[in-house]
Design a binder for these strands. Structure first.
Length: 292
DNA sequence: AATTCGCCCTGTCGGC
DNA sequence: TGCCGACAGGGCGAAT
């Protein structure tokens, strides 16, 4: 699922193809993805606006336009693709050992393509989301910062000082520490993949109650969060099913993960079989030896 | 107030 | 081969 490193990868890849481009027309094919706005006005409102900036906040992507801002959340399976003019219109999906997959570097328009922005010179921005957990919102000016979805987000983990955030751990909380990492009001942008990765790196059991964490463990954990997010960005995100870069390519981080997706496989640190369990209603992989 | 639970959704996969 | 249930899970609103 797209977490901070995936959304940041997408953001960086969209800056060049979108900045300064004018929206010639827009089509919203699945109106229920749109929050707080009459779907009928959506396309008309977007038409003629120019993209001024492409911003990320947590797992949210924001297109700042000349008049309004378009907020995009990719949910679980959302994909944004920048389709240059003359890209193949309806490429066949390829059947591979891992199922149906889109060929690299092409841009499908199919039944899961829920929004199309037609830009200058035939370029397009496509939003595709098979499971439709994604969300779109159009808000006036730069008011995205105060949109209910974004206003309560915690600090950006890559900009935070671990020493400062360590002090914000609730002192008496009985929650499992993984639940805190997934809480977007604590820090913004960490999801299931990078929570497991950070806990593994920090050597902390995901079920540990927050109140039992010692200050050096909090510091270690927050540093691990930054490390795994930076690594995710470096390798352009984790692709194991739907995540794709805006050019259609896959991220390279999946095979580099230490915990997520590795239940039943040997720990890369000590060789013990990694255990798969459920913590905070999420599938969770950890090493019973390395993570205390 | 803090925390957990149920729900939304569709493609994939294992079992029979 | 095909059907069916389980599973994947971000975030919100309801329930505890």
């Amino acid at each position: 699922m797209p977490e901070l490193p995936e959304v940041e990868t997408i953001r960086r890849a969209l800056v060049e193809p979108l900045t300064g481009k004018r929206i010639v027309s827009a089509k919203l094919k699945l109106p229920r993805l749109l929050l707080d706005f009459p779907p009928a006005e959506f396309a008309a409102k977007l038409r003629g606006q120019t993209v001024k900036a492409v911003i990320r906040r947590g797992k949210y992507l924001v297109l700042e336009l000349s008049k309004d801002s378009l907020i995009v959340h990719l949910g679980m399976t959302g994909q944004l693709t920048a389709a240059p003019a003359r890209a193949p219109e309806n490429p066949r999906f390829l059947r591979t050992v891992t199922g149906l997959q889109k060929p690299e570097g092409v841009h499908p328009v199919d039944k899961h393509t829920h929004m199309v922005l037609n830009l200058d010179k035939g370029d397009r921005l496509l939003f595709r989301d098979p499971r439709t957990f994604g969300k779109l919102a159009l808000v006036p000016g730069a008011s995205w910062k105060t949109h209910p979805r974004l206003a309560k987000l915690g600090p950006e983990p890559l900009e935070m000082k671990p020493e400062a955030i360590a002090r914000t751990f609730p002192a008496n909380s009985l929650r499992p520490v993984k639940a805190l990492l997934l809480d977007q009001e604590f820090v913004a942008g960490v999801g299931n993949i990078y929570a497991d990765e950070a806990l593994f790196r920090a050597g902390i059991n995901p079920k540990r109650k927050v109140k039992t964490l010692k200050s050096d463990e909090k510091l270690r954990l927050l540093k691990a969060v930054k490390d795994v997010l930076r690594k995710g960005i470096k390798y352009q995100g984790t692709t194991f099913s739907d995540y794709r870069k805006p050019d259609g390519g896959k991220g390279d981080n999946y095979e580099r993960l230490l915990a997520y997706g590795r239940g039943g496989f040997p720990c890369r640190a000590c060789g013990t079989t990694l255990r798969k369990t459920v913590v905070a209603q999420r599938g969770t992989v950890f090493c019973p030896v390395c993570q205390k």
